[in-house]
């Protein structure tokens, strides 16, 4: 039974990915700060702050004690809409900590195990806001641009050891997070990316799942769910 770690698995897209992979027969380890209500014989919840290297290392060691890790989905993320000149430093730091450092910590800890296995797939979550250079999200976009750069370098370094690292970029997905954003803003952004109807959780999961359902040799790739690509 293949094993996956999903970060940010307590709700929204992370939880939907966990449910989808459980249905496909995976053993799922969910990393989240919040309590996780998902109950399944092959789901194990871990209380993890991905921004803390020690927290990530401890949780990954627990997963490894039971065996291998085939797939890592770096889904945990934070978003904030602020005009560049009004973005508090603390907000920028928090975004970088969760989005970039969180991905880095998980990639380092799990990447070592995958190098030992000489096999593995890492999928990092990014956003269409990066290629759009979306105004009003400078700090968020910068943190996700860092994730994209990390994806490419990691792919280059780990390819020879059988480890692939890719990124997938989504627009607004219908979750609690985006419901807090004004409908006008969401509509405008969805128009720009050629998805005026928006993106459901099921569509987002299906797009991300192409990474393991339709495996290829691609590594270092960044796919966007939009007409940008």
């Amino acid at each position: 039974m293949p094993v996956v770690i999903i970060t940010g698995s307590s709700r929204g897209l992370g939880r939907a990915l966990a449910e989808s992979l459980l249905a496909e027969g995976w053993t799922v380890h969910g990393f989240a700060r919040s309590p996780q209500s998902l109950v399944h014989p092959h789901f194990q919840a871990h209380a993890v702050d991905v921004g803390s290297e020690a927290s990530v290392q401890a949780a990954v060691a627990i997963v490894l004690a039971a065996g291998r890790i085939d797939l890592l989905i770096n889904n945990a993320g934070a978003a904030s809409m602020n005009a560049l000149l009004l973005t508090p430093a603390a907000t920028a730091e928090a975004l970088m900590r969760v989005n970039y450092l969180g991905t880095l910590h998980c990639l380092q800890a799990v990447g070592k195990a995958m190098v030992r296995q000489r096999a593995g797939l890492v999928v990092n979550l990014t956003t269409v806001a990066v290629p759009l250079s979306l105004a009003g999200e400078a700090a968020y976009v910068a943190s996700k641009a860092a994730v994209e750069a990390l994806t490419k370098v990691a792919a280059s370094e780990l390819q020879s050891q059988g480890v692939r690292v890719n990124a997938v970029g989504l627009g607004p997905v219908d979750t609690d997070l985006t419901r807090a954003v004004g409908a006008d803003k969401l509509h405008t952004l969805n128009q720009r990316i050629g998805r005026p109807q928006g993106t459901t959780l099921a569509e987002a999961v299906a797009f991300i799942a192409q990474e393991w359902r339709s495996p290829s040799a691609a590594t270092g790739s960044i796919r966007y769910l939009s007409q940008l690509s």
Binding site: Q57, A61, K112, A113, V115, R116, E157, S160, Q161
Partner: peptide, 23 residues
């Protein structure tokens, strides 16, 4: 890359030999 692989593999070897994870 060979050096990085050596380090990763050795961390696992040390765990098996000593029961502790080190970086």
């Amino acid at each position: 890359i060979g050096l990085v692989t050596l380090m990763s593999d050795l961390e696992d070897d040390i765990h098996k030999a000593c029961g502790v994870w080190v970086i």
